[in-house]
């Protein structure tokens, strides 16, 4: 019983928004019908109820915008301009992309709606559909919208550095293209990205912003990382130093010690220790090599042989990275970005 009630309440919770939307749709259809028949006495109270906070069923932004549009249209017909502007602005604020259909509304209503747009700054993105783009097939396209002339900036966020996709004056619809690259000029990685449009009105001091979230998935071969630059540990010293003198002596002594240790420690006692004559010759040679190498040092004197070896190593690394970059360019040309909107629409 207890679980039955829980299931019932859960089902009601899930179905309530849909039912409320249907109620609002029915009421809105009724109001439109009354509007078509110029039945102001019945339509106006219904629309006012729908917009008021007391409306029990809730409204989607689109339903609220439609209700406000018809309210404004009624007031235009009644020649109450200020109220008409008020509701038209409410409609635009609810859904910036809303517009009056010239086939259904009078030129006066459409003109006043356009006036209302100049009094409200709102920016929005048109809903987008899933798309696939590739460097070889062309960029993705997004449409931003401002209600009137404004300074518009569109930025892609999600990478390490935001990339500006558009900056300039815009009025109405503005197509913004994106080639799939980030601020560094490389194809973006798979992940969630945010496109932010910010508008500053050129009519009055007001600004607005809108966001569009997209998921990007890369399809195709992954690029290879380039090799890091050669650092000190990878290269030979290019000048003598006091440390190199000590190092050479230590290296020679180390080899000498290793040779003697091999001869003295590694053999099995059963076969008898190796006589150390041969080992001593090698150990002495290693020690002398270290001492001679150290004695030939002049501090800070260049080491031409090492400089040449390092230069060759750097050139080889440079050539290898160039080869990797060429390979990556080829891989990039075969990579496709699959773009899907996160919520299907953007405010």
């Amino acid at each position: 019983m207890k679980y039955g009630l829980l299931v019932l309440s859960w089902a009601l919770t899930c179905t309530m928004p849909a039912a409320a939307q249907r109620e609002a749709d029915v009421a809105l259809a009724q109001a439109k019908d009354w509007y078509e028949h110029l039945d102001v006495e019945r339509a106006l109270p219904l629309l006012r109820d729908m917009i008021s906070p007391a409306w029990p069923y809730g409204l989607t932004p689109e339903q609220r915008a439609t209700a406000a549009e018809y309210m404004g249209a009624f007031f235009v017909l009644s020649d109450v301009r200020d109220s008409a502007l008020f509701y038209f602005r409410a409609a635009i604020e609810a859904v910036p992309l809303t517009d009056l259909d010239p086939q259904r509304f009078t030129p006066a209503q459409v003109a006043l709606f356009h006036d209302a747009r100049r009094q409200v700054l709102a920016v929005a993105f048109r809903p987008i559909l899933a798309s696939r783009i590739a460097p070889s097939t062309g960029p993705a396209s997004f449409t931003a919208f401002t209600t009137h002339e404004a300074d518009l900036t569109v930025v892609l966020r999600g990478g390490t550095v935001p990339r500006q996709l558009f900056q300039g004056v815009s009025d109405g619809l503005r197509e913004v293209r994106w080639d799939g690259l980030d601020a560094a000029g490389t194809l973006v990685e798979s992940g969630r990205y945010e496109i932010v449009a910010t508008a500053a009105s050129r009519v009055f001091p007001h600004s607005d912003s809108a966001r569009l979230f997209i998921d990007v998935r890369r399809e195709g071969p992954h690029p290879r990382d380039t090799l890091p630059d050669l650092v000190q540990g990878d290269l030979l010293p290019e000048r003598y130093s006091a440390a190199s003198t000590r190092r050479d002596i230590a290296t020679g002594a180390g080899v000498a010690a290793a040779v003697l240790a091999i001869a003295a420690v590694v053999p099995n006692d059963g076969v008898g220790k190796d006589h150390l004559a041969g080992a001593s010759v090698v150990a002495g040679t290693a020690l002398v090599t270290g001492i001679v190498a150290a004695l030939t040092h002049r501090r800070n004197a260049p080491l031409p042989a090492n400089v040449a070896v390092n230069a060759t190593a750097r050139l080889a690394r440079h050539a290898e990275n160039a080869r990797i970059r060429r390979s990556n360019a080829d891989r990039l040309a075969r990579t496709v970005l699959v773009i899907t909107p996160v919520s299907g629409w953007a405010p």
Binding site: L236, Y240, D248, G254, T289, G290, A293, H297, A305
Partner: peptide, 11 residues
């Protein structure tokens, strides 16, 4: 291990 600045190596 190279001996610095020479063509010798320790092994």
């Amino acid at each position: 291990v190279p001996f610095v600045g020479t063509a010798a190596h320790a092994l």
